[in-house]
Each structure stands twice: as structure tokens, then as C-alpha cells.
Simulated assay, not measured.
Amino acid sequence: MSNHLKINYLEIPAHDLEAVKSFFTQVFDWQFTDYGPDYCAFADSAGIDGGFYRSSQTSTVDQGSVLIVFYSEDLSATQDLIVSAGGKIHQQMFSFPGGQRFHFLDPCGNEFAVWSE
């Protein structure tokens, strides 16, 4: 399969790179590579390559940002893990045609969602 014209990389703002790396390592088992003091990258363990860049901005749906949605086989366990790692539930679990999901904020205030059938 060709990667031509496919989504290849995501970049997400973070005001505290150490906190965001710790959070995503604890919850999602991501591995990071630092590229100087203002950027860290994640790779295969995330399902897509990307990185966090130092910024005072946040990425939220209310601000018109794209919503990155994770899949989980156990929403309740994933929600508990997110909270115990320092994330905040932003929108409680709700049903939609095809499944359920909830939204959370990482330690830097970026919004993500997790869904399951």
C-alpha cells in the first residue's frame, strides 16, 4: 500500500513536554524521542507518527481543533487509567450509533476522545 497522499504525521501543542510524555507513556505505553528542548516525537506505538511541540496553546473541539479519537476494548478501565495518570474527563461517557465514547483532557489541556463498540 502506498503512503502517497495519506495522513502521515500529527503535531500537538503542549506547554509541559515532560508531563505530556509521562501521561501518554502511562496511559497508552507510547515511547518518545526528544528533539531538543521544545519537541518530542512518538512513533509506532501510537498507531501513527507524530509529536508534541512546546506551545502555550491547546487543542480543543471548542476552539475548532481536530479531535483525535482512540479505540479501547474497555472504556471504563481506560477512563480510570486516564484519571489516575493526571488526565481529566471533559465529557462523560455517552452512547452514539455504533458505540460509546468519552472525551478527556491531557495534562496540558488538549482534548482527545476514546470510543468502543
Score class of each variant (00 low, 15 high):
Asn3Ala: 12
Leu5Ala: 14
Leu5Phe: 15
Leu5Ile: 13
Lys6Gly: 10
Ile7Pro: 11
Ile7Glu: 09
Asn8Met: 12
Tyr9Val: 09
Leu10Val: 15
Glu11His: 06
Glu11Ile: 09
Glu11Ser: 13
Ile12Glu: 04
His15Ser: 15
Asp16Trp: 05
Leu17Phe: 02
Leu17Tyr: 06
Glu18Thr: 09
Glu18Ser: 14
Val20Thr: 12
Val20Gly: 07
Lys21Tyr: 05
Ser22Trp: 04
Phe23Gln: 09
Phe23Val: 11
Phe24Glu: 01
Thr25Pro: 03
Thr25Met: 04
Val27Gln: 07
Phe28Thr: 05
Asp29Trp: 01
Asp29Glu: 14
Asp29Phe: 10
Trp30Arg: 07
Gln31Cys: 07
Gln31Ile: 07
Gln31Thr: 15
Phe32Pro: 09
Thr33Pro: 05
Thr33Tyr: 05
Asp34Val: 11
Asp34Gly: 11
Gly36Pro: 12
Pro37Leu: 10
Asp38Leu: 00
Asp38His: 14
Asp38Arg: 13
Asp38Lys: 12
Ala41Gln: 14
Ala41Glu: 14
Ala41Asn: 08
Ala43Val: 00
Ala43Tyr: 09
Ser45Leu: 09
Ala46Leu: 04
Ala46Phe: 06
Ile48Val: 13
Ile48Thr: 06
Asp49Arg: 08
Gly50Thr: 05
Phe52Tyr: 07
Phe52Trp: 03
Ser55Arg: 01
Ser55Gln: 10
Ser55Leu: 02
Thr58Arg: 15
Thr58Leu: 03
Thr58Ser: 14
Ser59Ile: 10
Ser59Ala: 15
Ser59Asn: 07
Thr60Met: 12
Thr60Lys: 12
Thr60Asp: 04
Thr60Trp: 10
Asp62Tyr: 07
Asp62Cys: 04
Asp62Glu: 15
Gln63Asn: 12
Gln63Arg: 13
Gly64Leu: 11
Val66Gly: 03
Val66Tyr: 13
Val66Ser: 13
Leu67Tyr: 11
Leu67Arg: 14
Ile68Asp: 05
Ile68Lys: 02
Val69Gln: 13
Phe70Asn: 01
Phe70Met: 03
Ser72Glu: 02
Ser72Lys: 02
Ser72Ala: 14
Ser72Gly: 03
Glu73Pro: 08
Glu73Lys: 15
Glu73Ala: 09
Glu73Leu: 05
Asp74Ala: 10
Leu75His: 02
Leu75Asn: 04
Ser76Lys: 13
Ala77Met: 11
Ala77Ile: 01
Ala77Glu: 08
Thr78Phe: 00
Thr78Trp: 00
Gln79Lys: 13
Leu81Pro: 00
Leu81Gly: 10
Val83Phe: 01
Ser84Asp: 12
Ala85Lys: 06
Gly86Arg: 04
Gly86Tyr: 06
Gly87Arg: 09
His90Trp: 07
Gln92Ala: 15
Met93Trp: 00
Met93Cys: 13
Phe94Ser: 14
Phe94Ala: 14
Phe94His: 15
Ser95Thr: 09
Ser95Gly: 10
Ser95Ile: 00
Ser95Asp: 14
Phe96His: 01
Gly98Ser: 06
Gly98Pro: 02
Gly98Tyr: 03
Gln100Arg: 11
Gln100Cys: 07
Phe102Ser: 03
Phe102Trp: 00
His103Gln: 11
Leu105His: 05
Asp106Val: 08
Pro107Arg: 10
Pro107Asn: 03
Pro107Asp: 00
Cys108Ile: 07
Cys108Ala: 12
Gly109Cys: 06
Asn110Thr: 12
Asn110Arg: 10
Asn110Val: 10
Glu111Met: 12
Glu111Lys: 08
Val114Thr: 09
Val114Asp: 04
Trp115Lys: 11
Trp115Tyr: 14
Trp115Cys: 13
Trp115Asn: 12
Ser116Val: 00
Ser116Tyr: 01
Glu117Leu: 06
